[in-house]
Amino acid sequence: MLLNSVILILQETLEAALMISVLLAVNVRLQIKPIWIFCGVTLGIMGACIYAYHIEAVSEWLDGVGQEFINALLQIAIALCITLYIYWLFRFKGQTKQYDLDGRLVYSNQVQFVLLMICIIALGLTREGAEVLLYLGGFFPSSEQRFSMAAGSGIGFGIGLSSSIILYYALVNIPGPWRFRSAVILLALFAANMASQAALQLTQADWLPHTQALWDSSSLISERSVLGHLFYAIFGYEATPSAIQVGSYVAAIVLVGIAAKIGNRFSAGSKI
């Protein structure tokens, strides 16, 4: 039971926690107050509660594949938000610094960053959080396994939180231009991960055709191992990915790359 709780909680929290730590690290650069992250987290938890509460009704939608549809929708929305976020990041990369009356550094274009960040976190937590809530809710009445479940959840949550703290400080302490680059690369991987998961959901709902697995690396890194979960959370590792998943993964990275290019060009052109 314990191991099971660990894996389930880890699977769901790691992704969100790593995403939040990357956004926090970018926020340091953009001078955005961390309070907005909590805004996103609160909204996400609320969303998760609503989703978990209505999961039964949602499942009935669209001939029994409503869940897949909603999940895919959330994931696509997250991928698009990240793409837009990266676009704005590049758009204002070369922006000259502005100061307010008190001499503090301000970016006049913080609004879209804050909004997109809240969207990414809230949408991500809605999907991941609903599963955790259902899991914990299902166990709450059985007192027999409460301790092992609580311990397992605690350990899973602890591993997720610790990894994200280490990632945050690693990102903040990277010297020079690589700090920005690594954050962007991680965000792009998240977007791609979301796109590939969305493709999987749509395959499961039979909205996308089934394609054979391109490779099988389960003997190398099992999806059940801690490393497998970590890789899954960071870049969407799958031991047996289907062609359509790999395709959407690559497509999302290309899309992010294009967004970055466009942002960069606008940024170079509009420097005043």
Binding site: L2, L3, V6, I155, G158, I159, L161, S162, S163, I165, I166, Y169, V226
Partner: peptide, 26 residues
């Protein structure tokens, strides 16, 4: 920084070690 990173590192390795121990004990 020191407290957060040290505590996170200890937690991470402690928990992973505990999990491995749990697995092999099981």
């Amino acid at each position: 920084f020191l407290i957060a990173v040290i505590l996170a590192t200890i937690t991470l390795f402690n928990f992973i070690a505990a999990l491995q121990g749990y697995r092999s004990s099981l």
